[in-house]
Nucleic acid binder design. Structure first.
Lengths: 141, 141
DNA sequence: ATTCTTGCAAATCATTTGCACTTTA
DNA sequence: TAAAGTGCAAATGATTTGCAAGAAT
């Protein structure tokens, strides 16, 4: 839920950007809209490839810039499982990510219990990420 | 604990390597010994810089190769928090890592409860990693 | 009108690879 | 001595940066 009491996925991109002091450029609106509608942990390349048909001039630099801005604004989470490229996710209820050691795919795993870390005094936690490695049903032998 | 019932930190590097079918080259022994004695989540550069005085000819390629072998052998865990370089850890009791958004440091956070994910049928989990982001005591305002 | 965003090209940085040489078992 | 490890130099791949032109408030 964001400030308005709406869940991110159903909120209006324009409103979401405005609330974070981010200008609503055409590129940002399209990229944010794309992320809101796809929960596929896309990489920068994936976002760029999928949106190029809609915005033929879209540069990878802009995808990088926009995703950085969205992460800074708290709308999006960056996950970096193992080596390779970063993946991006609309900030959602807490869940874990499982990277398949076979196909490299990333899957959402619901979290039964929020990870309860014993935070030492003085530390402030702003964001948590649980990463699992293993095999998806197709890839285990 | 490894097979011998010893905790990794106190085990003999030579024995640990042999048990994984890894040859005990001088470089590997020194690198593994270093990791066993330091729980500082070193980067490849850190390992290389710290061990160059001991092995002046040590190449970064060998550090990469060795760490990859140790990870494959299950002796070491690779953690990739946010952007930047990978960090390496002797496999230990489960704990979380907190990356400080201020200084970039990585701190161990004990886990009170192991993260209990609701693993869907068919998935096999081989490794788990909990990453927290936030601020360390020095960096929060 | 001013400030922020875009996008190209070039730069950077971590990591990998090809390959001849050395070491380990 | 056969198989594996080392290390140099070059290649790769993701991400960042400099900067001039264009768009948003």
């Amino acid at each position: 839920m964001d400030e308005s009491g709406q869940t991110l996925r159903t909120a209006d991109p324009r409103t979401l950007l405005a609330a974070r002091g981010l200008r609503a450029s055409h590129q940002r609106l399209v990229i944010l809209d794309y992320l809101l509608k796809h929960d596929t942990h896309p990489t920068v390349d994936r976002v760029h490839a999928d949106l190029s048909p809609l915005i033929p001039t879209l540069s990878k630099t802009t995808v990088y810039n926009t995703l950085r801005a969205l992460v800074a604004g708290g709308l999006v989470t960056e996950i970096t499982i193992g080596s390779g490229e970063a993946r991006y996710d609309v900030r959602d209820e807490s869940h874990a990510h499982l990277r398949c050691a076979g196909c490299g795919g990333v899957f959402d795993i619901p979290l039964r219990v929020a990870p309860e870390a014993d935070i030492p005094a003085g530390f402030v936690v702003t964001d948590a990420n649980v990463t699992l490695r293993g095999f998806c049903p197709e890839c285990r032998c």
